[in-house]
Structures are given as structure tokens and as C-alpha cells.
């Protein structure tokens, strides 16, 4: 029972990190229709920046915050390059983000070397129902829930959030009412960068971060985003938590070798199910 609880909480913690990556992907895709393959890069940049800042003696909190800010700036920069030029198709922008992600490898290796690095998270552990749980996982879960609540408020209550939704609903009509779709896209990239950076700094104490850590992050994040049909942030969160818990369970009760395989197999089944459903709807409409 206590094992189960440990796996559950650690799974939820990992799932929250995945959710942050996935929701960044969804947010950028909603507004710009670009699948941003550099989303994992934001996490790596955020994490490595925070670790370096911690090494220089900056206190916890401030270093992480700056890491997130740097990731947001990188997100904005990638956005400018990918969609800044008018008339860039989402497909072209997708390839641009892929290229930028690879270019970022070179920069990251130059700046931080090619060895994995880790930071110190929240130390200590709490005992819940006889299960010892590292406090840092609870921090990850708490911060992520706060961020998702903030996003819900942004999209549900503010004009800026409505304008972002308007761009995703009908970019043409958005232009007609005077919403700059490109500017909204850049804002989406900046928020996506911040979300990625946050995932990075939160997960850095759990797994060491190297320049190529983005692959695992983007694969999981993308899987969660697909559960949300690249559109629904709430469903992305649910998908990410499911994925995180499933991986933790497989690693805990089975073997860690298979955790990604099993989790991604589940997502693949979900995708096929979704595609079949969409197809039947289209067939009926036709």
C-alpha cells in the first residue's frame, strides 16, 4: 500500500512536468497551429540556467525564477524566428522549430558541456500513510496546479485570454476585429517557453539534465498533448498525469526499462482510438 502511494505521488510529480511541457505545446499549437518541436529545449535551457545560477550562489527561488524567465525569452526568440515573418506556413515553422532545437544543442554544449547536471531540490521527506514521499514531488504538484489554475483564469476571464482563444478559433475573424495574430502567436511562444522552463527547473532535482534531455521530455509532452487533441489544456493535464502515473507504476512493479515503452504504447492506443472516432464522424458528415 505504501509502495503504491509512493509510486502514485512520484508518478503525479513526473506527470506534472509532462503536463507543463504538453500544455506549452498545446498553447502554441492552438494560437499558431505550429507543432513546436523545440518545446523540450525550453525546459533544458531553463533547468541549466537555474543550475548555473545556483552554482554562483544565488538563492533558491530566485535562480529558478530567472531560469524560467530566460526560457520565456528563448521561447519568444524562437517564435520570432519561426513565425515572425508574415505568411510562414505552420508546416514551415514546424521545421524551423526542429532546426532551432538542434542548433540549441550546439549552444548548450558550448555553454554547459555535454554532461548531465542536477540541482538540489526541496530537501526532506514527509510520511503520508506510512509512505515516505520526497517533499520536492509535492512542490512540483503544487506549483503545477497553481500554474494550471492561472491558465484557466487567463483563458476564462481576461480579454487577452479570449483574444488568444479567438486566434485559435478563427484567425481570419481575429484579424478582422483587429487582433494581431502574429503578436498573439509570439505571446503564445513566450508563455510556452516559460511553461517549458518551469518544467525544466522543477524536474532538474529529480533527473539530471543534459543538452539532449529534451527528447524524453518532448516525447512524453507530445503524447500528453495528443491526448488533448493538441487543443484542450485540461485534457492534456489529465493525459500527462495518467502517463506519469502509468510510467511510475510500470517502473515500480515491473522494470524501469519498459516504463516509456508501456506508457507510449498506451498513448498510441489512445491515438488510434481517437483517429478512428474522428474518421467515423467525418464519414457521417460526408
Amino acid at each position: 500500500m505504501s509502495d503504491f502511494l509512493v509510486y502514485l505521488i512520484t508518478g503525479l510529480g513526473t506527470g506534472c512536468g509532462i503536463a507543463l511541457i504538453g500544455s506549452g505545446l498545446v498553447l502554441i499549437h492552438r494560437v499558431t497551429r505550429v507543432v513546436n518541436f523545440a518545446q523540450g529545449t525550453f525546459a533544458v535551457v531553463g533547468a541549466l540556467t537555474a543550475i548555473s545560477l545556483l552554482d554562483t550562489g544565488l538563492p533558491h527561488g530566485l535562480a529558478e525564477l530567472l531560469g524560467v524567465a530566460v526560457a520565456a525569452v528563448v521561447g519568444l526568440l524562437f517564435g520570432v524566428i519561426a513565425i515572425g515573418r508574415r505568411g510562414t506556413s505552420p508546416q514551415a515553422a514546424l521545421v524551423v522549430t526542429l532546426g532551432l532545437g538542434i542548433l540549441a544543442y550546439a549552444v548548450e554544449v558550448m555553454l554547459w558541456g555535454d554532461q548531465g547536471r542536477s540541482s538540489e531540490g526541496l530537501s526532506g521527506a514527509v510520511t503520508v500513510f506510512g509512505a515516505r514521499i520526497q517533499t520536492h514531488y509535492l512542490l512540483i504538484i503544487g506549483v503545477t496546479m497553481a500554474v494550471f489554475a492561472a491558465m484557466a483564469a487567463l483563458f476564462g476571464r481576461t480579454d487577452a485570454g479570449k483574444a488568444l482563444s479567438a486566434c485559435s478559433s478563427n484567425p481570419y475573424a481575429a484579424r478582422v476585429v483587429g487582433i494581431s495574430v502574429t503578436r498573439m502567436g509570439l505571446i503564445a511562444f513566450a508563455i510556452g517557453g516559460a511553461l517549458g522552463g518551469l518544467a525544466g527547473v522543477l524536474l532538474a532535482p529529480m533527473n539530471s539534465v543534459a543538452f539532449d534531455s529534451d527528447v524524453a521530455l518532448i516525447i512524453n509532452g507530445f503524447a500528453a498533448a495528443v491526448v488533448g487533441s493538441m487543443h484542450h489544456i485540461g485534457r492534456t493535464l489529465a493525459g500527462a498525469l495518467f502517463l506519469g502515473v502509468a510510467e511510475a507504476m510500470v517502473a515500480g512493479y515491473g522494470s524501469a526499462t519498459y516504463q516509456t515503452v508501456v506508457a507510449l504504447g498506451l498513448v498510441l492506443a489512445l491515438m488510434i482510438g481517437q483517429a478512428a472516432r474522428t474518421h467515423s464522424v467525418v464519414a457521417e458528415a460526408g
Binding site: D159, A166, S168, N170, A173, I179
Partner: peptide
Amino acid sequence: MFGDLTVDDNLRLG
């Protein structure tokens, strides 16, 4: 017209 948004939001965005 923004199909995903409510009528009220559509008007406000005008």
C-alpha cells in the same frame, strides 16, 4: 465569428 467562444465573448472581442 469565433465558434469556440460564447456569444458574449464574441461581442466583447468586437
